[in-house]
């Protein structure tokens, strides 16, 4: 799991690549999001475009990150996921928790509303 971050306009983008499956590597994701929130970023976009699969532990990480953002009066949205990842969100109904976008431009624009 690789984690990169980028600030675009008023949003912080967290770009993930590899597999989101928990374990020590996934802690880097949580720490990155925690740091961004502590730095004052409130609009977080997690880019899953280069994530090949997510397991239930990875979903748990996304949920805890979502709650962490909410506790800092922030929002965490998702972009760029494959059909396989979208299917798992649909089955678990987490598509009712997360705002999911197909493309980054639309996702970034959503923070301006």
């Amino acid at each position: 799991m690789k984690v990169r971050q980028e600030i675009v306009g008023g949003a912080a983008i967290v770009r993930l690549s590899g597999q989101l499956m928990g374990g020590p590597e996934a802690e880097t994701v949580r720490e990155t999001i925690q740091t961004l929130l502590e730095q004052g970023h409130r609009n977080l976009l997690v880019d899953l475009g280069e994530v090949s699969w997510v397991n239930s532990t990875g979903l748990g990480l996304l949920i805890s990150s979502h709650l962490l953002a909410a506790n800092h009066a922030g929002v965490l949205r998702l972009v760029g996921m494959s059909k396989r990842i979208r299917d798992i969100l649909t089955v678990t109904r987490l598509d009712t928790v997360f705002q999911v976008y197909d493309d980054e431009q639309t996702a970034l624009a959503s923070f301006q509303v």
Partner: peptide
Amino acid sequence: DPTSPAGLLDSHGRGIFIMRAM
């Protein structure tokens, strides 16, 4: 039931549910 209102925001307990759903 990870799809219940309380379960949706629980970060655990989805593995068996996912397998059975799929």
